[in-house]
Computed example of a mutant assay.
Amino acid sequence: MKRLAVYCGSATPSDPRYVQLAYDVGKALAEQGIGVVYGGGRLGLMGATASGALDAGGEVIGVIPEALVGENGKGGEVANRDCTELHIVKDMHERKAAFTRLSDGFVVLPGGVGTMDELWEAVSWAQLGYHAKPIGVLNAFGFYDGLLAFNRHMAEVGFVRPAHQGIILDAPELAPLLDLMRHQAPITPIVAMDPSTL
């Protein structure tokens, strides 16, 4: 894994553990020689992830839609011009396609609606065979306990096929999560399945 897309919130929660977590993840990835591909903003957990990686001398590639660039400190996330590379794209669809194209996998830190959108699209694309890259959820502080339980519930009810129940990998700390991602077994996408078994 030479580069990982890091999905996380652009907000700054009142609990400082979340921002510190994001900084530490960026730093740890850089120290392992893993480049960070992220949303290109300088605020919240996104900005902290980039700062951690940059402070450790790592590669940081930001991908941000035009509408979120912001000018003179007004509007949007305000693009992080300190990135190794900053790609300004047309919209969110191009942004997520770039995340997938530029990275070798996805690490999901705590975040809100945008982070959920990115996570579930990555999972859906893996199911369909649009990519075969590992997806890791960093369940720090139990933040994703409910989401992981809901994912198990979808599988139990029958909305997630047995072949796809291992797409989302999770761990409470980064090191074991990266280990899981490096050793994930190949997933059989829907397009490669026997239609009679779907």
Rank of each mutant, 00 (worst) to 15 (best):
H87P: 06
P134I: 00
T84K: 13
G166Y: 02
A126G: 04
E66L: 12
I88S: 10
A56K: 00
M116Q: 14
P13T: 09
A192L: 12
A50R: 06
C8V: 10
E66C: 08
L177N: 05
A140Q: 06
S10K: 11
M116V: 03
F141G: 03
E173P: 04
A79R: 00
M193D: 07
L21H: 03
L119C: 01
L54N: 12
E156K: 06
G70Q: 09
G158P: 07
V19F: 04
S103N: 08
L169H: 01
N80R: 01
A122W: 00
G40A: 11
R101T: 12
T12F: 09
G142H: 13
D15W: 13
A185R: 13
S196A: 14
G26I: 00
M1S: 14
Y7N: 02
K74Y: 13
Q165G: 04
G52N: 03
V137C: 13
D24W: 00
P189H: 07
I61P: 00
I168H: 07
Y38H: 14
A126Q: 07
G62E: 05
L174S: 04
V37L: 06
I61K: 00
I167V: 13
P172E: 13
G58Y: 00
Y18Q: 08
M92Y: 09
A98Y: 08
H131P: 05
T115D: 01
G166M: 03
L147F: 10
F159P: 09
L21M: 10
T115A: 03
D55G: 08
E59W: 02
H93K: 06
Q184T: 12
F106Q: 02
L174P: 02
I135V: 15
Q165A: 10
D179Q: 15
K27E: 08
R101G: 02
A126V: 08
P189T: 01
Y23T: 09
K27S: 04
L128R: 03
A5S: 12
H153F: 14
V25D: 00
D91M: 10
G70S: 11
G136D: 04
G142W: 14
G129R: 01
E156W: 05
D91F: 10
S124H: 13
T100F: 03
N72D: 15
E59Y: 02
V191P: 04
P172H: 05
V78S: 10
R17S: 15
L21I: 07
D194N: 15
G44M: 02
L147G: 03
A22C: 11
E77M: 15
A192C: 06
G114L: 08
A53R: 01
F159V: 11
M92V: 10
G129I: 00
G41Q: 05
A155M: 10
L109I: 09
L174V: 06
E121P: 05
E94G: 05
A53Y: 02
L86G: 06
A98G: 02
G129M: 03
A11L: 06
P186G: 04
E71Q: 14
L198S: 06
A22W: 04
S14Q: 15
L68D: 02
I135T: 07
I190V: 15
R152A: 12
D15Q: 12
L138Y: 01
K74F: 14
R17D: 12
F141L: 11
G76R: 09
V113K: 15
P172N: 06
G9M: 08
V36Y: 01
E59M: 06
L29K: 02
G52Q: 03
R152F: 02
R95V: 03
L68S: 07
R17N: 15
A97T: 11
A140I: 07
E71K: 15
G112H: 04
I190L: 14
T197F: 11
T115N: 02
